[in-house]
Design a protein around this nucleic acid. Structure first.
Length: 475
RNA sequence: GGCGCCGUCGCCAAGUGGUAAGGCAGAGGUCUGCAAAACCUCCAUCCCCGGUUCAAAUCCGGGCGGCGCCUCCA
């Protein structure tokens, strides 16, 4: 497996340190609002990474956290006049629903930051012992000047950070503009913890360092991932914390996923901007459904672009993906109606070739777009073989196996299948109507046959007549 | 102002030194009660200008355009 490592800005061979289990930490959602499809691009990309590593035969121990205490979660819970925990709970649940809808595999640990305050306090105390901190007005800060390697991930030099055009908006007093807060002093109306520190609450960055070390064991962990916007300051600060506290490397590999972009309307020149809550240009899974699309289609859109490239999202792209996905599922459905006969030796060769090419692309920094291309080339070859009468039923199982193997990494076909299992019309009704329509067609009552098809069509079910009978699918 | 990424067919998108994957859309054809699906054929020389090389979409330089980070952010 070759992966692009942000630490070195190079593609490098990746394997877990112990050769067996990948210990990975991926930054999750800040639960002050429902996650949008830009957030989920990252989560799906990291899910594919997880699946690809499993495909390689590794076991996985993954942490994906919920940030449930920070300025925004607190502000929103105050606004909603709800306790912090209660307010964030609904977004944790929404995330879990959305994640399942997009076919994300469950992770081993999905901790909420507020359940791990003690681990954070412990790391802050270790940083104090190592001389990396100072306290001002009850808040504890990380003194960057004590960590010479600061900036090694983001590759920002000190001068660059200082001369930034923006003014630091943090209200707390810091010695140096680059210093960041580890623990914020208690403020009226805000939740606080003690945990052996002055009453207060954790800064944003400490949770990830602390939970990674607590849940994944000895540092360094194998891999840390997240959205590209987290490189600085979040991941840079995580490194300073974990390495300052333990004097060990934090993570061997860093993987970052590019943004999902959305077009800016009413601009003469084609331009776009990242989807983000602060820009107010977000769509979530509910909006996707309202446009008539299923989560599997979105997952396909995600995989059609390499994870390190900005993804140009639009509803037109979704419609294109839906058609592409149908081509795949239509092909798989054709496999059910193959003529009897023993396996054709040519099929196995074709399958092996495609499997090798597919694995090769996935192993090369997770090139899912190229891997999809392999899949479609195989579909065309096999469709041709069916038309030529060269793909007998004896080949069906191995063909299906091959696509199932691809899908263990992509997670698209199984997701679509799960969606199909809940069609808008009960399956018994569909089958009854197909039966009635067959009788009508047998007696050449085509008007009635067409009426039944139109009726189902209006309810979201398409009927297709094949030599092996009539089959149905969702629109 | 600093750091970095990107610009490939109408749309989405692989390819990063050896002569342009794939999907969608489109055109023509085969098949078909109709419809669909499928198949066949057609459909780009890679933003512009220089340079390096036997050979460049791929490397270098300069433009033009888009985007991100430097502040909360997936």
């Amino acid at each position: 497996m070759r992966l692009f490592n942000t630490l070195t800005r190079r593609e490098e061979p990746f394997a877990p340190a112990d050769g067996k289990t990948v210990r990975m930490y991926t930054c999750g959602l800040t639960v002050y609002a429902r996650g949008h499809i830009g957030n989920f691009r990252t989560f799906v990309a990291l899910d594919v990474l997880r699946r690809a590593l499993e495909f390689e035969g590794y076991a996985i121990r993954q942490v994906r956290n919920y940030t449930d205490v920070d300025d925004r979660t607190i502000a929103e819970s105050l606004k909603a006049r709800k306790p912090l925990r209660e307010h964030t709970q609904q977004f944790v649940e929404a995330f879990e629903r959305d994640a399942a809808a997009l076919g994300l595999e469950p992770v081993e640990y999905a901790p909420r930051a507020t359940d791990h305050i003690a681990a954070m306090a412990g790391m802050i105390q270790a940083l104090e012992r190592n001389g990396h901190t100072y306290t001002t007005d009850g808040s504890i800060y990380y003194k960057i000047s004590t960590f010479p390697e600061y900036g090694k991930l983001a590759r920002l030099d000190h001068a660059g950070i200082k001369s930034g055009a923006r003014v630091d908006s943090d209200k707390y007093e810091k010695d140096d503009a680059r210093d960041f807060v580890l623990w914020k002093a208690i403020k009226p109306g805000e939740p606080s913890w003690e945990a052996g520190l002055p009453p207060g609450r954790p800064g944003w960055h400490i949770e990830c360092s602390a939970m990674a070390a607590e849940l994944l064991g000895e540092l360094p962990i194998d891999l840390h991932g997240g959205g590209i916007d987290l490189i600085f300051p979040h991941h840079e600060n995580e490194i300073a914390q974990a390495e300052g506290a333990t004097n060990r490397q934090f993570s061997r590999f860093w993987v970052h996923v590019e943004h999902l972009m959305i077009e800016i309307e009413a601009e003469e020149l084609p331009s776009s901007e990242k989807m983000s809550k602060s820009l107010g240009n977000v769509y979530n899974l509910e909006d996707v459904a309202a446009q008539g699309f299923r989560p599997s289609t979105l997952r396909y859109v995600y995989l059609n672009t390499h994870y390190r490239k900005q993804l140009k999202f639009s509803w037109s792209v979704m419609a294109q993906a839906e058609e592409a996905l149908k081509r795949l599922t239509d092909f798989l459905a054709r496999l059910d109606a193959l003529p009897a006969g023993d396996a054709n030796p040519a099929t196995a060769a074709r399958l092996d070739e495609a499997s090798a090419a597919f694995a090769d692309h996935i192993r090369t920094d997770l090139n899912t777009a190229a891997a999809l291309g392999v899949m479609f080339e195989l579909v065309r070859a096999l469709n041709s073989a069916i038309d030529a009468g060269e793909l007998p039923a004896g080949d069906a199982a191995s063909v299906r196996d091959t696509f199932e193997r691809f899908d263990r990494v992509l997670g698209i076909l199984s997701l679509r299948r799960a969606e199909e299992a809940r069609p808008p019309v009960p399956v018994e009704d569909i089958e009854r109507l197909i039966h009635e329509r067959r009788a009508a067609r047998a007696s050449r009552n085509f008007a009635e046959a067409d009426r039944i098809r139109k009726d189902l069509d209006s309810r979201g079910i398409l009927l297709e007549d094949t030599t092996a009978g009539t089959r149905w699918k969702r629109k």
